[in-house]
Nucleic acid binder design. Structure first.
Length: 729
RNA sequence: GCACCCUUAGCUCAGCUGGUUAGAGCGUUCGAUUCACAUUCGAAAGGUCAUAGGUUCGAAUCCUAUAGGGUGCACCA
């Protein structure tokens, strides 16, 4: 008797490196990632319910990291699952220009190689260099994204700086300006002296630092500071109105004090911002260089004099220290105060937090500047006819349940962020980005997309990168035109991203979509955790603990890499990833491959081949029960996915396939398949191939490659690609 | 400082609305192997569920406090 054989293509072990590129090609050629093609080819009903996700666009500055890989895996699972369930499914790809990050990277590179600054090159030349860089970088990241098996519709690819998106940004700005929500004003902003630009509140990172803390004698008061260089013009003494210790001083009262550059007339200000429990409870203020001091000064109508210029150099008001950089001046000022006997004491080693620009910039110096802002507390008329503020809208969108955030605990954080939100500074002094559509001629200002004509000059500033990102769910669908895609796919079904980006992005999309469209940008926000190394540390270059997703794909296959990022990753919690885990899931891929080999071999049993179709085979009672069991598992998997518990869904498929299907069902089938009862043999073979089919389907969203590769070997299949096969219901 | 999360086997984590002897993967130890499986199979060892109280017939699960770890926000002169 001839031993049965698996089809030729079933070489073992399963080799992802060989199969994956072939599957990618099959998928790409099919065009099924494009819902229009699916409808055209009849795999999806024309009136099917839409399901859409817009990919959070990776920055063009770099290459794919594990965080991206996790995002791609999760979204692809949702997308493939819904496509198989018959939804008109769109997953829209894009890349982000990441203005500040990109420009500063290119600038750094140029300076390293050519010792030239952007001012040496000029605006036009720098933009040209940036474009070169982003073109290359874009190609890399797109290529890497594809390798993960992401079934994105590349025919709809968008880039934040392309023409359509640029037009959308201009339109949005003009509309918001006309509605009075965008204004130009002099307010205190976060100034980065290194990158020479403003930075938004959210891009600031507080870094712990040790500095000496000085106690100065300011007349009868003890004043503390770590920044003596800002103190030249301090002529207001602020204390809490209920502070008993200073009850003898009256608000508005003036006193003469000896100070750095001679005597000064100080005014007493009573304000609740002073913390009675901190130090002496008394402080002097520098409104031009501190957000809190600025607010106090605003409340009381006080003078706000600048002491430090944009480069961090002391202005003439500093007297003998004028023209000096603050870093240098600090020690000299302290020396002088010491000489004058104005230092009460110094605490060395005072730990405090310093604001830095998280986008690779320097230490933030608050400055008062004329910038463009979005007013978050101003009422405006929304497209739905209601009048409200942006803040009210953002709160409403989540409170009403129109947007659901998962895990739910992040809703609290979202509200907290909104409550503390101040007017959003959207102008930047960098060159790479969307130009502000404001035009100046003498004292006149016009806000419109194109030039108003001769003699008008455009604002040299560009927009905060998050401004254009806020439009992303609809600028990618053709807005401001009333396109078919807009009508079909907006609001999108899910926005899936890391929880670290909730404020930067999610809240701003809600804001923009609400005001410009009168609707939410997405129904659900699903937040995944961060990918950390095996011992829970953040992956970083300096720690040398980076696991590169592409290396994992090469070594173990994309299926294994995807599974390792999904199983054990409950929503909102961080995932610890080690190479061992990825390797473990490669074994699983091989297991699935071999299960298929076995099932197919037995279909080709020379003693009486089964058709492999259950309706043709004489299914016994047990065969039927086994099939029912597989359907039950499929149903549970669906329920898990519907509840966004992808970790549980993946875990369940994994265990069903390995422990139940392979270890028990196949093992117990062996005697039957080898037995002499032809009817029993046929029935069981048919049942096994049915269970294999169901297993491949429910496994496909998680491990698209190996399952599709097996599907291609099936002697008869209900659809040309597993990618568009019907999900078992 | 305020808020949130975590603490379960050597390691990484499940265990959701309280209900038999607390589970998985990896690792360890022992054994099997002409078999779809070089990546296989079977078995074993291993846990005061951070600690202390409370609610309950019953708590890993709910409540309170404490300790340790993490994150976000706010920063203070």
């Amino acid at each position: 008797m001839e031993p049965s054989k698996a089809p030729e293509a079933f070489l073992r072990p399963y080799n992802p490196a060989e199969q994956e590129p072939r599957m990618l090609e099959l998928w790409e050629d099919s065009g099924y990632a494009n819902p229009d093609v699916c409808v055209e080819k009849g795999v999806i009903e024309p009136d099917a319910e839409p399901y859409s996700i817009v990919l959070p666009p990776p920055n063009v500055t770099g290459t794919l990291h594990m965080g991206h890989a996790a995002m791609l895996a999760i979204e692809d699972i949702l997308i493939r699952y819904h496509r198989m369930r018959g939804y008109k499914t769109l997953w829209l790809p894009g890349t982000d220009s990441a203005a500040i990050a990109t420009q500063s990277k290119v600038e750094t590179d140029i300076y390293k190689k050519e010792k030239k600054t952007r001012h040496d090159l000029g605006r036009e030349e720098l933009l040209k260099r940036i474009e070169q860089f982003t073109d290359e970088s874009k190609a890399t990241i797109i290529n890497q994204t594809k390798k993960m098996g992401s079934s994105l519709d590349w025919s709809r690819y968008a880039y934040t700086m392309d023409e359509e998106r640029y037009a959308a940004v201009m339109e949005a700005f003009v509309r918001m300006y006309d509605a009075g929500l965008i204004y130009r004003g002099d307010r205190i902003v976060n100034w980065d002296p290194k990158l020479q630009t403003t930075v938004s509140d959210d891009e600031i990172e507080h870094v712990e630092q040790k500095d000496p803390f000085f106690h100065f004698k300011y007349g009868p008061f003890d004043i503390g500071t770590v920044r003596p260089e800002t103190k030249f013009v301090d002529k207001y003494v602020v204390m809490h109105p209920e502070d008993e210790r200073y009850a003898q001083y009256k608000h508005g009262q003036t006193i003469e004090v000896e100070w750095i550059n001679g005597p000064i007339t100080a005014t007493i200000i009573k304000d609740k911002a002073a913390d009675m429990s901190f130090g002496s409870g008394v402080m002097t203020i520098t409104p031009a260089h501190s957000a809190i001091d600025f607010e106090i000064a605003q409340r009381h109508g006080l003078d706000m004099e600048r002491v430090i210029d944009d480069r961090g150099i002391l202005l003439p008001i500093a007297g003998e220290f004028a023209g000096m950089h603050i870093k240098k001046a600090r020690a000299l000022i302290v020396d002088k105060l010491k000489a004058k006997g104005l230092i009460a004491k110094v605490d060395e080693g005072y730990m405090h937090n310093v604001a830095t620009n998280s986008r690779g910039g320097g230490i933030i110096e608050p400055q008062i500047k004329r910038q463009w802002f979005i007013a978050v507390n101003k009422k405006a008329k929304f497209p739905d006819g209601k009048t409200r503020t942006l803040k009210e809208w953002m709160r409403h969108a989540v409170e009403s349940g129109e947007v659901g955030i998962m895990p739910e605990r992040f809703e609290k954080i979202y509200y907290h962020w909104i409550d503390n939100l101040r007017d959003w500074c959207i102008s930047r002094q960098i060159w790479f980005g969307h130009r502000i559509p404001a035009w100046f001629k003498d004292d006149e200002v016009k806000v419109q997309a194109g030039s108003p004509g001769e003699g008008w000059e455009q604002d040299p500033d560009t927009l905060d990168t998050w401004f254009s990102s806020g439009l992303w769910t609809f600028s990618t669908l053709g807005w401001p035109d009333d396109t078919h895609d807009m009508k079909t796919y907006h609001p999108t079904s899910v926005l899936e991203t890391g929880y670290d980006i909730l404020f930067f992005w999610v809240a701003r999309m809600v804001l923009m979509s609400g005001f410009l469209l009168g609707e939410v940008p997405f129904r659900k926000v699903y937040l995944h955790g961060l990918v950390r190394d095996g011992s829970g540390r953040k992956m970083s270059k300096s720690l040398g603990n980076i696991i590169d997703p592409l290396t994992m794909v090469e070594k173990y296959g994309a299926d294994a890499a995807r599974l390792s990022l999904v199983i054990g990753a409950s929503m909102g919690n961080d995932v610890k990833l080690s190479e061992d885990r990825v390797r473990g899931y490669k074994h699983f891929g091989n297991k699935v491959w071999n299960i298929a080999r076995f099932v197919l071999e037995n279909q080709q049993d020379p003693r009486g081949p089964s058709s492999g179709r259950p309706e043709d085979g004489p299914l016994g009672e047990e065969d039927r029960l086994l099939i029912v069991e597989a359907h039950t598992v499929a149903k549970q998997v669906s329920e898990h996915i519907d509840r966004f518990r992808l970790d549980l869904a993946a875990d369940q498929v994994y265990h069903f396939v390995w422990d139940r299907f392979a270890a028990e069902i196949l093992e117990s089938s062996k005697p039957i398949l080898k037995g002499d009862d032809a009817a029993a043999r046929q029935g069981r073979a048919a049942a096994l191939s049915e269970i294999l089919g169901i297993s491949l389907k429910i496994l496909h969203p998680f491990m698209p490659f190996v399952t599709e590769a097996i599907w291609q070997q099936l002697p008869q299949k209900e659809s040309d690609l597993l990618m568009v096969a019907k999900w078992p219901v």
